[in-house]
């Protein structure tokens, strides 16, 4: 499954960067996170509760940030396990400054599903990814407003 898109937020890349690197903030932004624990440099252990229509399941796994380029971008690796299947994703995230207080967040990557998620979920996967993305940016904006 392809995951890509972009979103413009009214904040400088440095602000966004700080938020993305902050475990507490990240836990609020990533949709469905019920627990996020830093386990090392740029690695996290996570529990995600995904409730989307027919699918309601708890995912456990890791988030990892690689190829970190300060305030510019990073690669996010996600490995999640659940009883209904596993999801692995590799997403390149780039922050592009658009003027002083504006950043375009670009993301581009792929997610792989296994198990029931793969065999039963095709009809809804497109919607899942679009929705999770929307939620992510909505949460991000909410956090930005708070700051």
């Amino acid at each position: 499954m392809q995951l890509n898109g972009k979103h413009t937020v009214n904040a400088a890349p440095s602000v966004i960067w700080k938020m993305l690197m902050d475990t507490d903030v990240l836990a609020k932004i990533v949709p469905g996170i019920s627990r996020l624990e830093k386990t090392g440099d740029n690695t996290y252990k996570s529990i995600l509760d995904i409730k989307l229509g027919p699918v309601n399941s708890s995912f456990t796994g890791n988030l990892q940030m690689e190829d970190i380029s300060e305030e510019k971008g990073f690669a996010l690796k996600v490995q999640q396990h659940s009883k209904i299947g596993n999801a692995n994703a590799a997403i390149k995230i780039d922050l592009l400054p658009l003027g002083e207080n504006q950043t375009e967040i670009q993301f581009d990557g792929q997610a792989k599903m296994t198990g029931l998620l793969a065999s039963m979920g095709q009809r809804v996967m497109g919607g899942v990814s679009a929705t999770l993305t929307k939620q992510f940016f909505a949460n991000l904006e909410k956090e930005l407003d708070k700051q």
Binding site: P54, N56, S57, I84, L116, M120
Partner: peptide, 14 residues
């Protein structure tokens, strides 16, 4: 008819 099919596959476990 929306819920039980998902529950049978254990996609949903209320």
């Amino acid at each position: 008819h929306s819920l039980l099919p998902a529950m049978k596959l254990r996609l949903n476990q209320p």
